[in-house]
Design a protein around this nucleic acid. Structure first.
Length: 614
DNA sequence: TTATTTCCTG
DNA sequence: CAGGAAATAA
């Protein structure tokens, strides 16, 4: 039987019932306030912004009002206005959020010049390292030019370099450039995504605020292209206000975009993180204190079309990125992602997430997306969310072997299963993922191993009882979740067609039970002589509620939202009225009720997105 | 065709 | 709760 209303699809109703909760949730990442927000903010926007600050640079630090500010850094190349002091700053305070302070611009420039000099030293010759004190801007530019030359020179060199001990500088060089390329790749990813989102953004929003935001964003890019030009007129941004799509549609779009953005960013950052860790692991523990600024510094200076000395891995990463971005629609996204995961150079181990320290054995290192889940988690939920589902891996790095990898994985699987019963344990600070911090502790392999373990999130192949439990609780908020919503709220589930339909089937079963109860109690009310719909109430003491609560919240450890009681009451009243009016003689009399109820879905709290919610 | 949903059955 | 059938919408 079809429950869809004649005019519109059932699962995407154009409802007006959710303005309250949705207004502020709509594409929250576009609100300028999120840009400066602490990482604790659960909007991906702020976290992404922070990551961008960490990993790219703050070219736009003077424009603190845009979220997806990532400029065409890849095309601007040797933009002299680039400030790359992030990592240097992070040496002092990893997660400092005061780096927006522009009053120290001069100081930063000097710092940047210093750092660049260091890089040049790294890239050019072992003897050229110098930590010049206060080089000026010209010095910085010269450094960059030198670096470019160096890159060109290296491009002509054969790509294969054996990591012989006699040439550690070269290997460091390679690492630097690899990281550089990765970050570049990430920049491109983010830039593309930014454009895509801003495009949709422009289409979806007609409000002045949004228009202003969009204009600002264009200004940003414009001014950057002008490379410090004097004046730049504001571009007119076309805003198609046409047919206001339903809240639901916008919400779905939002979810999809957020998801894609989060995945992309986390994927990109994760790649870099891994690469960095590899670098650290391949060095002896007592290797000289890591050279953090170099990593960020080199990559930022190289124009997009700079001589590429990409290794195969970098190529594959690039390919992954492209693949990822070619999947515009959410439906194709998972497909594309799985394609990425199944890169030829990877063995079957790809199917499962593996700890970071396994990476040296997969020298193709294309992107294993699952490992990025942890970062994605952080992106989504901030530093205070629960990580109980995250396994802790043995910290034995030295004895890594394929076998030990397998064992490590097994222990992961076991432990994540065991631990998935609690929350409020295993809180993880975002500091753990702060790259500069990692480099600072690069001598400490143990801590790196621990950090690495956080990069692994166990992706369930199937749905667990806990997932069922969670789904039932979600039913208190949404009776008709879209598959997209489900994907978003079960991040630890590896979705495929089967899983999706199973999850959908669950909610179908939930509804079935729900409506059966409704009809039962409505008929009971009539039998009991209730004459007025107004007399039909549903409270927490109602028998109906007890029946429902017993079904969806058997443990009774969840505070059912009041809204659910309202929805239940409305549903019961609908059934009562229909039956009282003998509408139930019509075989499809319930369809009208379904149509009403499907509009009463509300937003599921963000907490539910945590893989370890239960 | 595919995805979604209800209905029915076990 | 899962499996299957049927209807329906895209």
């Amino acid at each position: 039987m079809n429950l869809s209303p004649p005019e519109h699809s059932m699962h995407k109703p154009s409802d007006g019932c959710m303005e309250d909760s949705k207004a502020e949730h709509l594409l929250p990442c576009y609100h300028r306030s999120t840009f400066d927000g602490p990482l604790a903010s659960y909007h991906s926007g702020s976290i992404i912004s922070h990551l961008l600050r960490k990993t790219i640079h703050n070219k736009l630090s003077s424009l603190d009002n845009n979220l997806l500010y990532l400029p065409s850094a890849n095309t601007s190349g040797l933009d002299p206005e680039s400030n790359n002091e992030d990592f240097a700053q992070d040496d002092q305070s990893c997660m400092s959020f005061k780096d927006e302070d522009l009053s120290v611009n001069e100081h930063l420039q000097a710092k940047r010049a210093r750092v660049e000099n260091i890089i040049r030293g790294m890239a050019a010759s072992p003897n050229s390292r110098s930590h010049g004190g206060a080089e000026g801007e010209s010095e910085a530019v010269r450094c960059r030019r030198d670096l470019l030359k160096e890159n060109k020179r290296k491009q002509r060199l054969p790509q294969h370099q054996e990591p012989s001990q006699s040439n550690t500088k070269t290997s460091k060089d390679q690492e630097c450039h690899r990281l550089k390329e990765q970050l570049q790749s990430m920049q491109r990813l983010l830039h593309q995504l930014q454009e895509k989102i801003s495009h949709v953004h422009d289409q979806s929003y007609s409000e002045n605020v949004e228009r202003e935001d969009a204009r600002s964003e264009h200004d940003v890019q414009h001014s950057l292209k002008m490379d410090g030009g004097a004046t730049h007129h504001k571009e007119q941004v076309k805003v198609e206000t046409g047919g206001f799509s339903s809240d639901r549609a916008v919400k779905n779009l939002q979810e999809t975009l957020k998801s894609e953005l989060t995945r992309t960013v986390s994927e990109s950052v994760d790649m870099v993180f891994k690469k960095l860790s590899m670098t650290l692991l391949n060095q002896s523990p007592r290797a000289q204190p890591c050279h953090s600024p170099e990593y960020s510094e080199t990559e930022k200076q190289i124009p997009d079309d700079s001589p590429s000395e990409l290794s195969d891995s970098d190529e594959s990463i690039k390919a992954s990125s492209v693949e990822h971005f070619e999947s515009n629609s959410p439906e194709h996204q998972t497909e594309a992602l799985s394609l990425v995961v199944r890169k030829p150079s990877l063995s079957q181990a790809v199917k499962r997430p593996y700890p970071l320290h396994q990476m040296p054995f997969q020298f193709g290192y294309s992107a294993p997306l699952h490992d990025s889940q942890i970062l994605e988690h952080l992106l989504k939920y901030g530093p205070h969310s629960s990580f109980s589902a995250l396994p802790c891996l043995p910290a034995s790095l030295e004895r890594s072997s394929p076998d030990s990898m397998e064992r490590a994985w097994d222990s992961v699987g076991m432990r994540s299963k065991l631990s998935s019963g609690h929350h409020q344990t295993g809180l993880v600070s975002v500091d753990a993922l702060c790259l500069p911090r990692v480099k600072m502790e690069c001598g400490d392999l143990q801590s790196l191993a621990e950090r690495s373990s956080f990069m692994t999130l166990n992706i369930q192949e199937g749905l667990s009882p806990n997932h069922l439990k969670k789904a039932k609780l979600m039913f208190f908020y949404t009776r008709y979740p879209s598959s997209n919503l489900l994907k978003n709220f079960f991040p630890d589930v590896k979705f495929n067609r089967c899983i999706t339909s199973q999850l959908i089937k669950w909610f179908s079963n939930f509804r079935e039970f729900y409506y059966i109860q409704m009809e039962k109690f409505a008929r009971q009310a009539i039998v009991d002589g209730v004459n007025d719909v107004k007399d039909i109430l549903v409270t927490r003491e109602s028998e109906l509620f007890r029946a429902l609560n017993m079904h969806y919240n058997k443990a009774n450890d969840f505070q059912v939202p009041d809204r659910f009681l309202e929805v239940a009451e409305i549903t019961l009243q609908e059934f009562y009225s229909a039956i009282a009016l003998s509408k139930d003689s019509d075989p499809s009399w319930k369809k009208a009720i379904y149509k009403v109820i499907c509009k009463l879905d509300s937003d599921v709290p963000e907490d539910f997105k945590s893989p370890s919610y239960l």
